[in-house]
């Protein structure tokens, strides 16, 4: 089974977000980048499937050279090879067209992604890639098994789940508790250095949106503390002051 895992390079989840003085771009200085947490579920599940059934795991990232450290990390965790499309990810449509191009070329059985990127929170790339390739997309999947040519997935829905059987190839986006993310061991880190990381130039694609400027949410004015001995007072305040119950 050939599996493609799409990984996005995102600020560590503890990052305090700031922007350049003109508010036109995200200020990356001093920011630690990580593999998008949801993509780690996709990556680990892909490696588990490969270990159990054979095949290969390729990771793909659309990004600039600063993604390489996390691509190497994915190789250290257990992916076999990697493709980096050398471009700034302009928007979801641009990224999806790049991924679809290589997904088609590599004839993958499974294309796995994260539920969403924690920087742009688009929730878009999986649907777009699936549409470009004419494949079903199961979003968000919380469980994935493959027997022969058929995948059985659980999809998270509001207040429950669906069980879905669908033939390969397909696109799925991953969400906890799909797999327990792994950390690379020493041997993995050593072998990752010699695994192929192919850098390719982007195919021609127009973004559908333009990011003009960024802003931060308004700060809270401060907490109003209520005496625990008189906790019921809170309920009164929620009605009379906040007017929400």
């Amino acid at each position: 089974m050939k599996i493609l895992v799409c990984i996005s390079n995102v600020p560590d989840t503890t990052t305090k977000i700031t922007f350049t003085p003109d508010n036109k771009s995200f200020n990356t200085s001093g920011v630690q980048f990580v593999i998008n947490p949801y993509d780690e579920y996709a990556l680990t599940r892909a490696i588990e499937l490969k270990e159990a059934q054979g095949g290969s795991v390729t990771v793909i990232n659309v990004g600039e050279a600063d993604s390489d450290a996390n691509i190497r990390k994915a190789l250290a965790i257990g992916a076999d090879d990697a493709i980096r499309v050398n471009a700034r990810p302009a928007d979801a449509l641009f990224v999806a067209r790049q991924i679809a191009h290589y997904a088609q070329e590599g004839a993958f059985d499974l294309i796995l992604m994260g539920k969403e990127s924690v920087d742009y929170n688009g929730y878009q790339v999986h649907g777009m890639v699936a549409e470009l390739l004419g494949l079903p997309a199961i979003v968000p999947a919380i469980k994935l098994d493959v027997t022969g040519n058929t995948a059985t997935l659980e999809r998270e829905i509001e207040g429950g789940k669906e069980i879905i059987r669908v033939d390969l190839p397909l696109v799925a986006s991953c969400q906890q508790p799909m797999a327990e993310p792994r950390i690379p061991n020493m041997r993995g880190i050593m072998t990752a250095r010699t695994k192929p990381l192919k850098v390719v130039e982007p195919v021609d694609a127009q973004p559908g949106t333009i990011y003009e400027r960024y802003s931060l949410p308004e700060k809270k004015s401060g907490v109003k503390l209520i005496d625990p001995a008189n906790a019921g007072e809170l309920i009164r305040l929620l009605r009379t002051e906040a007017k929400i119950i």
Partner: peptide
Amino acid sequence: RRGVFSGKAFADVKLT
């Protein structure tokens, strides 16, 4: 205006 960075910021996006 759309939420980005998991609720930590907003971006103004032009749909062309």
